[in-house]
Write a protein that binds this DNA or RNA. Sequence first.
DNA 1: TTTTGAGTTGTTCGA
DNA 2: GTCGAACAACTCAAA
Length: 480
Amino acid sequence: MNSDGRRAAPPSLVWFRLDLRLADHPALATAAARGPVVPVFIWSSEEEGAAAPGAASRWWLRQSLEALDASLRQRGSRLIIRRGPALAALRALVRQTGAKSVCWSRRYEPSLVARDVKVAEGLRADGLEAETFNSALLFEPWEVKTLAGGPFKVFTPFWKACLHRPAPPAASAAPARLDAPGTWPESEPLDSLELVAKTDWAAGFRPAWEPGEKGANARLAAFVDGGAGSYHEARDFMAADGVSRLSPHLHFGEVSPRRVWDLVARCAAAAPGRGPEVYLRQLVWREFAHHLLHHFPLTVAEPLRPEFSRFAWRRDLKSFSAWTRGRTGFPAVDAGMRELWRTGWMHNRARMIAASFLVKDLLIDWRDGAAWFWDTLVDADQACNTLGWQWTAGCGADAAPFFRVFNPVLQGRKFDAEGVYVKRWIAELAALPPAVVHEPWTADPAGLAAAGAYALPLVDHARARERALDAFSAATSKDR
DNA sequence: TTTTGAGTTGTTCGA
DNA sequence: GTCGAACAACTCAAA
């Protein structure tokens, strides 16, 4: 109730989640059109289960919430922060503000879908309106269907089906201003959520990233102006600036996929070439990951292909630990893992090399790799992480042919010919010539001495490859 | 129902 | 050095 006694529209709560932006935000736009808005973020990692953010994601979240609050304040509003459980927090806010409706963007992680259904039911039982919107995807995961009406398990037909769907609505602008409620409810201080580790592990993140909507738009603009046209050629070279680096911004919803699609497609229309289209396919891979997660929610923890559930993964804590620290002795693997640790992100080519090494060369369970990525990637996303690791392990959709085992030396030579990338992240290799930088154990004595602090290879790749081929053919053969 | 062509990202070997 | 074929058999999606 407003203190001045005027008959004002009751406020609406807008529950912010992975949609930390103001532009192209249907839940916010809907609420803002009705009257006063109370934007709220609820920290509730206990009830989010496997979808609760890892350490790197929490660092990002901390920065992004701060940025969201700042841009809300520019529009006469602010971000209210509360602790979960979500339903209790929303009910308390409803009591304190007199809100009559709650709007939010849908999330798709299996552990959250069930929770969110209960939240909506609870609010409606209280006589409130609870409205949910799609702000994270181009298409809802259940909208894209095969002719038989089922889910896709292969990317290319999924891509074609997406292209034949009606285009999603164009991205909309941020509301120019937001009406404030009569009085603001209390907010927890952002610092009290303790999202950032006490030790400054993330020192290397700051120069690499600008979390928040402004940073997302800057990154998108830079990509559209610079890299999109040559994306198809440059994206595989790990030392180059050839990829968009939009993944964390997309994960946290700081920019909408529709806006990314619009701008890249416009760029394709203005200067036709393979680059933009190849990038748009990547954007649809993100959709495909959510499609699979929706239809096969158990794949978070179980292989999509059931024959893999009996696979005898090796338990090898020492090797796993060496992998996490970037000390496997294979520079193409270790550079990626060190880039991850320092910046919270890894080039996609390096992700494939590092993941293949863990799963194929070390025969360590893909779920252990996924858990490490979950904790250390700023773009950690349950749908994409699950798809990526199952793809690498060959147990998911679009399974890799059994013989596709990445050779870390060849991959290094091919996609980092001069060794610029490995030297950037592995100081011990600085003095080695390109000819041996991806296999330092073959360097001459002087080179070996220079690289002395670097690790020896954990495995002989040729032998490890044979071992992997045997193990995978044993697991997938029908007759047993 | 059956058939057919295809399936993100690789490696190796031999010509 | 470059190039094409071979590397299992299977599953998916559509005709």
